[in-house]
Design a protein around this nucleic acid. Structure first.
Lengths: 205, 205
DNA sequence: TTAAAAAATGAACGTTGTTCAAAAATAAAA
DNA sequence: TTTTATTTTTGAACAACGTTCATTTTTTAA
């Protein structure tokens, strides 16, 4: 166990500490309202130190966006024990919405903010692996549905994209306050009421 | 025609000039990249003048968001000449997507940015009239569909919300670069391919 | 021509993300 | 142990941001 090894471990620890502090503040007071100085204060380090461990703010946001996908993975954990792909698809949408509502700021970061994508564009690895992997779980499930005779006459990829868009759109409108603006009859349940309409539809296909 | 009247008209003209300059810059270089100083420079006025006519940046963004809804109305113009509500519904989604793709920055402002909603919260009129009115056009059309015997077993409002979410979600993922991240087989047509899957589905209902 | 009112101005303030020479802490060498 | 070299941390300083407001300029009324 060399000194270099320990130093490397300590670097990782501090990096994780910064991310932890950032996440806490993001959830507490919003991403836009959180400054690098806030983050530095939160973990009792100076601003300069934050910039030693992260190139800029988009780097922090990108790393946190990746953590968000890990957490979303947690919500999906149980799903792949479900054999019936249609049942799995139904539950997957629920889990997705649940994650979005329980982790609004993280969801926003993962699927709405420009920062994580801007970071990718500037970095050498241009691929959005997290997003692609998550989308693939939907695609695989829908493929199984098709193989079982569901969704006759449909194409896997565009259909998967449509399903993703449907749940994403609902979460998006909710998180960005657009459901509050349109005065629904039942504002508190509109997301699940909307999702139920979708469930009714796929039951017929 | 009193002096006061002319003054009032001149005030409106300058307000419109500021909005016009702001919109031009927003489209040219993005909303986030446009500063009040940029806008003032663009129209050859000082920063201070901008603040005489608008309380703050969210006021500019809100007014521009309203203009966006007028423009979206233009895309919807022809639609209500279509008698068949199902055909109108199909075309409405297309028009919506077309508007979103041709006016990405404006669409973002209307349905994604927090500024217009923050402005509403602070103002006395808390209602998002523009959004509610636009949603109502979808709702009315779907109601007509139901009256004609389509969408049996479905509820107007949640179903309308679901349809809105579906197209909004697609536009959102596209505009916020999430479709570029997930490497689709046909990235250039995925939005319309996805929308076609939706069309296939409602044809069966 | 002069006084009053309205409109336009831009320097100045507090904050932001970011940088970087200097200081402090740690490791290696003597 | 003491000295030297390396690594880590620091916070003052910078440019740019949204915003304010005392001052100046322009316009209107007297």
């Amino acid at each position: 166990m060399s000194v270099a090894d320990r130093k490397a471990r300590e670097k990782e620890t501090l990096k994780a500490l910064i991310l932890k502090g950032a996440k806490k503040l993001f959830i507490e007071k919003g991403i836009e309202q959180t400054t690098i100085r806030n983050i530095a204060d939160e973990i009792d380090y100076s601003v300069g130190t934050v910039y030693v461990y992260f190139k800029d703010k988009t780097a922090i946001l990108h790393d946190l966006h990746s953590i968000g996908f890990q957490e979303l993975g947690g919500y999906f954990q149980e799903l792949f024990k479900i054999e019936d792909p249609m049942e799995r698809l139904r539950k997957m949408g629920f889990a997705y919405i649940k994650f979005a509502l329980e982790n609004q700021e993280m969801y926003d970061l993962m699927f709405n903010l420009k920062a994580p994508m801007e970071f990718l564009e500037k970095s050498e690895n241009e691929d959005w692996d997290e997003g692609a992997a998550t989308f693939n779980r939907v695609k695989v499930t829908i493929e199984e549905c098709i193989n079982k005779g569901y969704f006759k006459g449909h194409n896997v990829e565009p259909l998967s994209f449509m399903v993703w868009s449907l749940v994403h759109g609902m979460c998006c409108l909710e998180i960005r306050q657009r459901t509050k603006g349109v005065k629904f009859t039942n504002p508190d349940t509109i997301l699940f009421d909307g999702y139920n309409e979708y469930l009714k539809i796929i039951d017929k296909l």
